[in-house]
Design a protein around this nucleic acid. Structure first.
Lengths: 335, 335
DNA sequence: TGATCAAATCGAACCGGTTCGATAGAACGC
DNA sequence: GCGTTCTATCGAACCGGTTCGATTTGATCA
């Protein structure tokens, strides 16, 4: 591999001139620039990004840290970020924490060690320790998906309260009163907000929610399945189930199918968040989806802004909250 | 950030001794080792991975390069690799080429620039140029999923011929004769092998395949949908459709549903590869799935072996081909 | 023609580690 | 008691760039 010294020797200039010609061509004379250009071509020189990062203290990498890269929600956002970053000569490396806080921490530390230019982070933690950890990171960061109380960073996400309220109102309009809600983890902002949207909308309609109708699905498949089963075995069962995310809702659908309930004839179902191949799942589930492309675009722009612009680096953190979209299916019937 | 020189100063030894104590403790006396340990703790020293990589010419990163991280097939493999790598003090960075060869190339070059210890690569190319490119990479590589003719590297994948043949035989046993096949790109090994499994099994059964029954789905949603439509509008339509991968098969299901065909009553459907939430897709599709966990495990072990062991680095490339598994659904009926 | 100043280029230090040959001192054998 | 071997440690060079103050070159002006 040719180094910058090989180029310098061949072009008969100093190493520093070659470096300068590359990073700030205007400060090198036309003639010298040409000599260097030819020398670079002759020896096939490509700057070593590692050495550059070490010397500069900053690399051209952007870390994308999420709990599950397989989730299409994160996939869409990743794609947006990647395209935008590539257009600005940056490079996205993806790491998956599998939702484990300690693993996420190790990964973030590793990325920081790599002198990443910036981080797009979907936080997996929530406690004091975690907040302090994120606060202590000295690198541009845009958080998304989960809003964590105490983290003073840019945040990009959806109005989850609205998402929960929209679906609840829809079910109310269809005549449902016995509506069950499968929740997510109570430490997750998305989960609590979606539930709040449900609970307040029900309260505003003057309906008491049966406490047995609120079950914890942990946003996971196993817990969601179990939660759904608990709903389905009740004598006075709900006429509609609202899943706080795609995983628990689909687990509920599975549970319903297994027990022999028809959807929507016996029980209606609605969910927050899209899922791959939702178009071939029968019935097509009524849902509220996030605008992943817009979210991704905002994350990308905000992060690159902080990375590239000197004043961007010191701007106070801002929240960007987008409205979700209602997508009707045929999983909710009028009663 | 504390550097190794701070540690050396505090412990009153040379920099090289500190380095030695860290990388090869046995060669440093007990007393000195302890002094260094305390000094490290006192100043909070953590070695800069960038500087280490530059000096060593190798990092502790493993690159995972695929065309679509959102595909659960790749997701499972990634998880296996990640867990195994983490146990061996390595760190996986994921990059997604979106299936574009030039982007994959740029990413691989970037990863090599980062002095990655090794690469797990799902090749996206196939031509002479591409083969030469992969051949020229001077780093441990394990290829998987697509076997590319001419690439002399370890390969881990499934027996795709068998996968195609198994489903074809299954449909034959159920009495089907007019079986259609939606193919993938002809330059992909998985696609051609799966088709070969279909075609030879049909030939062995003495059945002529109607040329109109073999349509190109490109492994994509749009092409798969279009291909399925071409099958469905034929007057003498197939009694069963075999999708060469999950995407084209589900596109076919969607097309069938949209036109009003019932599956399996009107047309049977089978596919190769699993898909998330296949359990809630109606009907449950009969399929042949790859053993992703085993594939991931083999990839991980093989790659780490090449990375860590001196003789592993020079072993001749080997192919690891696993048999797929038949998973019955209720999308194929006896006729 | 000589002083002045800007533009072009250079040299050296630096980023933060690793590695290897050299050296000092201890242990050993005879 | 002296040469030999081994162990522990050190110094310097190196990985491949960047950066900045210093120096050279060339143009401008009195």
């Amino acid at each position: 591999m040719a180094t910058i010294r090989d180029v310098a020797k061949l072009a008969d200039v100093s190493v520093s001139t070659v470096s300068l010609a590359l990073s700030n061509p205007a400060r090198v004379s036309q003639k010298t620039r040409e000599k260097i250009r030819q020398a670079i071509a002759a020896v096939g020189f490509v700057a070593d990004p590692l050495a550059q990062s070490l010397a500069r203290g900053r690399s051209r990498m952007i870390g994308f840290v999420v709990g599950n890269v397989g989730n299409p929600f994160f996939g869409d956002i990743r794609r947006e970020l990647e395209n935008y970053a590539l257009d600005h000569e940056h490079f996205v490396v993806v790491t998956d924490s599998s939702g484990k806080t300690d693993r996420e921490r190790a990964m973030v530390e590793h990325l920081i060690g790599l002198k990443t230019a910036g981080l797009a982070l979907a936080p997996s933690g929530y406690d004091q320790d975690y907040v302090a950890f994120v606060a202590g990171l000295n690198v541009p960061i845009v958080c998304f998906d989960q809003k964590v109380a105490g983290i003073e960073r840019d945040f990009v996400g959806s109005d989850n309260y609205l998402a929960g309220a929209m679906l609840t109102e829809h079910l109310l309009q269809l005549g449902h009163r016995r509506i069950a809600f499968i929740t997510g983890p109570s430490h997750m902002h998305t989960a609590t907000e979606r539930y709040r949207g449900f609970a307040e909308t029900m309260a505003n309609a003057g309906i008491d929610v049966n406490p047995n109708f609120v079950v914890d699905g942990q946003f996971t498949r196993t817990a969601g399945y179990e939660a759904a089963m608990r709903l389905l075995i009740q004598h006075e069962r709900p006429t509609a189930i609202l899943g706080a995310n795609n995983t628990v809702a689909l687990s509920a659908l599975q549970a319903m199918q297994e027990l022999g309930f028809r959807c929507p004839e016996d029980i209606s179902l609605a969910m927050i968040d899209n899922v791959q191949w939702s178009s071939v799942i029968t019935p097509r589930i009524t849902m509220v989806v996030q605008d992943t492309l817009a979210l991704g675009s905002i994350i990308a722009r905000r992060l690159m802004h902080r990375i590239r612009s000197p004043q961007g680096a010191v701007e106070p953190p801002e929240d960007f909250v987008l409205a979700p979209k209602f997508v009707p299916g045929n999983s909710c019937r009028r009663i």
